[in-house]
Computed example of a mutant assay.
Amino acid sequence: MDKLKLKALYADLKPELDIVETELAQVVLSDSALLTDAALHLLQAGGKRIRPVFVLLSAKFGDFTIERIKHVAVPVELIHMASLVHDDVIDDADTRRGRPTVKAEWNNRMAMYAGDFLFSKAIASLSHIDNSYAHELLSDTMVELCLGEIEQVEDKRSYDLSVKDYLKRIRRKTALLISVSCELGALAASVPDKQRVHLRNFGYYVGMSFQIVDDILDIVSTDESLGKPAGSDLLLGNITLPVVLAREEPGVCRLIEKVRLGDTSESTRKELLQELRSSEGLAKAKRISNLYLEKAMEELKSLPKSSAKRSLQNIALFMSKRKF
Results as ranks from 00 to 15, higher is better:
residue 178 I to H: 01
residue 10 Y to K: 00
residue 182 C to H: 02
residue 240 T to K: 13
residue 162 S to G: 09
residue 57 L to R: 00
residue 86 H to K: 04
residue 18 D to H: 10
residue 14 K to N: 14
residue 284 K to Y: 10
residue 293 L to R: 13
residue 119 F to P: 01
residue 242 P to W: 06
residue 30 S to T: 07
residue 62 G to L: 00
residue 221 S to R: 06
residue 186 A to P: 02
residue 106 W to R: 06
residue 4 L to A: 11
residue 136 E to V: 01
residue 299 E to D: 14
residue 38 A to L: 06
residue 319 M to E: 10
residue 65 T to Q: 12
residue 302 S to M: 15
residue 117 F to N: 01
residue 285 A to M: 08
residue 228 K to G: 05
residue 99 R to L: 12
residue 166 Y to P: 05
residue 70 K to G: 10
residue 64 F to R: 00
residue 206 V to E: 06
residue 274 Q to P: 00
residue 223 D to P: 05
residue 7 K to Y: 08
residue 145 L to I: 11
residue 8 A to F: 08
residue 275 E to F: 01
residue 67 E to M: 11
residue 305 K to I: 00
residue 318 F to Y: 15
residue 247 R to E: 12
residue 324 F to L: 12
residue 79 I to T: 02
residue 72 V to G: 07
residue 140 D to V: 02
residue 167 L to D: 03
residue 38 A to T: 02
residue 198 H to L: 14
residue 307 S to C: 01
residue 16 E to Y: 15
residue 225 S to G: 07
residue 122 A to I: 01
residue 291 L to G: 14
residue 260 R to M: 01
residue 147 L to E: 15
residue 22 T to G: 05
residue 47 G to L: 08
residue 256 I to L: 15
residue 241 L to P: 14
residue 254 R to M: 13
residue 19 I to D: 14
residue 52 P to T: 12
residue 194 K to M: 10
residue 133 Y to K: 04
residue 211 Q to F: 07
residue 4 L to P: 00
residue 253 C to N: 13
residue 83 S to Q: 03
residue 284 K to R: 14
residue 46 G to Q: 03
residue 186 A to M: 02
residue 176 L to G: 12
residue 262 G to S: 06
residue 42 L to T: 02
residue 83 S to E: 08
residue 29 L to V: 10
residue 264 T to L: 09
residue 305 K to A: 10
residue 56 L to T: 11
residue 89 V to K: 02
residue 56 L to V: 04
residue 62 G to N: 00
residue 127 S to F: 08
residue 33 A to N: 10
residue 177 L to E: 06
residue 216 I to D: 07
residue 22 T to K: 12
residue 304 P to M: 07
residue 312 L to I: 04
residue 218 D to G: 13
residue 197 V to T: 11
residue 6 L to Q: 04
residue 202 F to M: 04
residue 33 A to W: 05
residue 155 D to N: 14
residue 21 E to K: 09
residue 159 Y to M: 03
